[in-house]
Design a protein around this nucleic acid. Structure first.
Length: 182
DNA sequence: CCTGCGATCTTCT
DNA sequence: GAAGATCGCAGGA
């Protein structure tokens, strides 16, 4: 994945993702149908769905299913392989470069992604601020999968979190924790 | 190392 | 009105 910023390109090698399957998936933002927020997920694959959560963070998905299916993949973590110096000023809390994009909100922050990029076509070539690259594929037998992070209820049964084992940029797994009532 | 909690606001019910 | 595809800090072991 490459993020083109005014200061230069940032390249990211994805190490952890989670899949969400639209109307069939209680864990998906698209489960209850199309809304203003999730409309990008119902559009063409290859576009980017960015949402804002917990009052301060952005997270980024790639739409994967055909139009109308609302299937998407949350980009949860990765290794910055180029332009790390451009991300450090936005990721001051990172104690080392492995933490620059270790988690979905950290990844979006490192790449400088916010809702202004919601709907961006990530397959549109070098003039796009965001592009999915065709790197060296990781063989499927070198990828582990398990329950998704932070997903509760019936959707929690799907082992749709995928990561590269022993990669230091993969975020720690945390089960869903209901928020304390005020 | 680990656990608990506050921040802060959009979104849908 | 309440919960949320989270993170970072404080405090204790």
């Amino acid at each position: 994945m490459v993020r083109r910023t005014p200061d230069g390109p940032i390249e990211l090698r994805l190490t952890e993702v989670e899949a969400y399957d639209g109307a069939n998936d209680p864990g998906s933002h698209a489960y209850r149908g199309r809304t203003a927020r999730n409309s990008v997920m119902f559009g063409q694959p290859g576009h980017v769905y960015v949402y804002f959560t917990y009052g301060m963070w952005h997270c980024m998905n790639l739409v994967c299913g055909e139009e109308g299916r609302a299937s998407a993949v949350l980009l949860r973590a990765g290794e910055i392989t180029e332009g790390a110096e451009l991300t450090r000023e936005r990721r001051l809390s990172a104690r080392n470069d492995k933490e620059l994009a270790k988690g979905p909100a950290r990844l979006a922050t490192a790449l400088g992604v916010d809702r202004s990029l919601n709907g961006t076509d990530a397959c549109a070539g070098p003039d796009s601020p965001l592009t999915v690259l065709h790197g060296t594929p990781t063989p499927a037998d070198q990828v582990l999968n398990g329950p998704r992070t932070g997903v509760s209820g019936p959707g929690g049964v799907h082992p749709w979190r995928f990561w590269i084992p022993n990669d230091p940029t993969v975020s720690p797994y945390r089960p869903h924790t209901p928020r304390r009532r005020t």
